[in-house]
Design a protein around this nucleic acid. Sequence first.
DNA 1: TTCTTTCCTTTAG
DNA 2: CCCGCTAAAGGAAAGAA
Length: 776
Amino acid sequence: MMTWMELCDPSLTHRKMALNDNKAGMEGLNRDKINKIIMESSKGSRFYENELKKEQQVNQRIERMMLQKAHITEQQLSKAQAQVEKMTSDLERGRDLSRVIVHVDMDAFYAAVETRDCPDLMDKPMAVGSMSMLSTSNYHARKFGVRAAMPGFIAKKLCPNLVIVPTNFDKYRVVSAEVREVFADYDPHFLPMSLDEAYLDISDHLEQRRGWPEALRTHRLHTNNTGTARGIEVEGLSPVLFENSPSSSPCLQDAAGGEVEVFGTCAEEAVREMRFRIEQKTSLTASAGIAPNMMLAKVCSDKNKPNGQYRLPSNRQAVIDFIQDLPVRKISGIGKVTEKMLGALGITSCSHLGQEMALLALLFSETSWHHFLHISMGLGSTHIERDGERKSMSTERTFGEMGALEEQFSLCKELCQDLALDLQKEALKAKTVTLKLKNVNFEVKTRAWTLPCAVATTEELFAVAKDLLKTEIDNVSPQPLRLRLMGVRVSSFASADDKKPLQKSIVGFLHKKQTDSTETDISMSALTASDKITHEPSAHASTSSCCSTVPESGTDSLTCPVCFREVNTTELTVFNRHIDQCLSGVTMGQNNHTDTELERGPCVCEEEVEKEITGGKREEGPKEKGSKLLSRCVLDSVGLRLDSTNISLSTVGLNPVCLNTCPNGDVSIHRANTLKVSSQSDPHVRVCLLSPGGPRPMTTPKPESRDHRGPALTCPVCQETQDTNDLTLFNRHVDLCLNQEVLHELGGLASVDRTTHTAPPAAHKGPCFRNVLFTE
DNA sequence: TTCTTTCCTTTAG
DNA sequence: CCCGCTAAAGGAAAGAA
């Protein structure tokens, strides 16, 4: 299947096109006309310019490959050849032809559903999607060159009468569920690839089926209330747009007078039956491929589309023959670029692939050439299994050009909100947050940051995302970022054991504690805002569990949520006593801990860091030394002990924003990139640092700095000194502040005169867009 | 060197 | 009205262990 971009490419224009304006050719456009129209709609657009640039990059990649090829010696080649042959025979020995794999694909699914529900559409060219992107088109529209993955506005030029129906996923999901019910009868472990596509292993079904009486293989044509067989009615006017229904073979009458059809026991009959049942149930048709493995089944399902099926027999020779002249592009996983690269080596069909294996082994990575070898031998997975746990989750949005800071940040927050919601649905927490940006020139870049512990809430995500965004903004300052897309992704999910036991009980424990002790209540108000979060139910449990998990504690110790030290007990009563002491200690500004209590095995670097931070004597290369030490700390996920009242975060390469989201004793984040230890607090308070795991540079220091040292309390959220010493009042303020933290952030940023920003110390080195490198 | 993180590219539906 | 969204995998480059 050709993409519209390929149609754009004038160098491909000479190629024959399967597109036929069959019958009289009244409607539909010929290929040249299509190309011309697409070209005219595209030429000169920023999108098109970017496509050209990407194409250049691919061309350079090919050039480099050819250069490499030129340096290959005869000797290397024969060595590779031997390796390939060895591997080939090993693979051949393991060839498994015993399974019967089926790939089923609904025909023009979304379009078919829409047509079924609105028969008026039937004889009109239509597509499902929007002006900016189409998902599917019906066969009418395809005659005009209108296809999936083509923007609607171009489709409209190709076919002005095109009806564009917006997608309605809820509807497709319902239909999909019906189809899957049928799949399940043939393979309860079937693997859905999308709403309209699935792999099945029907080997077991066939085994059983052989012993089935006819009755079990007999299926009735559904009748509507007028008594007409729906399948037949459908062929007349409804959405089943294709002939050769699986039900087209002779029908029998059953006892009740309804029409029935009996299916055989072989694989083809079973699949035909399955397609028949799908059509009866949904009025939609499907195509299928039957083969000994998934890779081949996928190719086969395309062979007689629409509304058809193809079986590749389970014998080696049949497979070899089938593969021979198959264009490499037909194989799932070989896309436009790979096709082009192989093409440059004279490889277009799978048999070429086999012939050039030695060369490929030298030019491509191991995984790549192994994959090629499998393809050339017609090998593929013989058992289908559902995907394991998800690896990432993301949300992104495209919009009209956006340059305003406030807009960008509030959008970023929105995305974080959406994502947090999705995370919540699956009860996931992630360590890595990635920001994706696309500017008006379609240049894409991503910026990621890995935290030492998993996060999940909007605030936590936004704390990281907004900072990544800010870094990018600062990078191009004083020009604005002219965005057309923004996205946020999370990955590196916490492992299952990471996200439950122990911690929950601690939180619950504290919670209880709070309700029956006024004193504790007051004590807690002395903690930072983030600590207070811990008292809210599940949503914020992450914060506490995150940091309580911090030390590589064995199973025989608990981590105090106040001082973040390990308590060497599993007895809750003992632990309780510790926390009690700890809380009152923090409140009273006393150090309740003896030095031995402070000793805590796992943090190798604690002392070094402490010295580094406290001493104030950072004679040489404090930055380098500091961040080095710190990164070790981060790996150990430890808390730092702070002995001075103001610690420069940039010195140790920390990102202050991230501290917002973490409980941190009596330490607040100072505007000027410093940690501020409240005058009342224990000088040995511990801070749980949410800092980047890697060596990458951190934040740009903020412009102005204020020093708060008065006896009054400083709000850890808004950084403002509160004119009170009443902890209850202060607590209330922090609560309010916390709720509005994000807004405060936005307001603050928006009001900053951007020209006063100092140039960031090359947070991410190199040009903003790597692509630019290639065009020069 | 080896392992990890970041960022980019390719693919698919 | 002027080219989407989500997810996964692999590879290059750069640091850290």
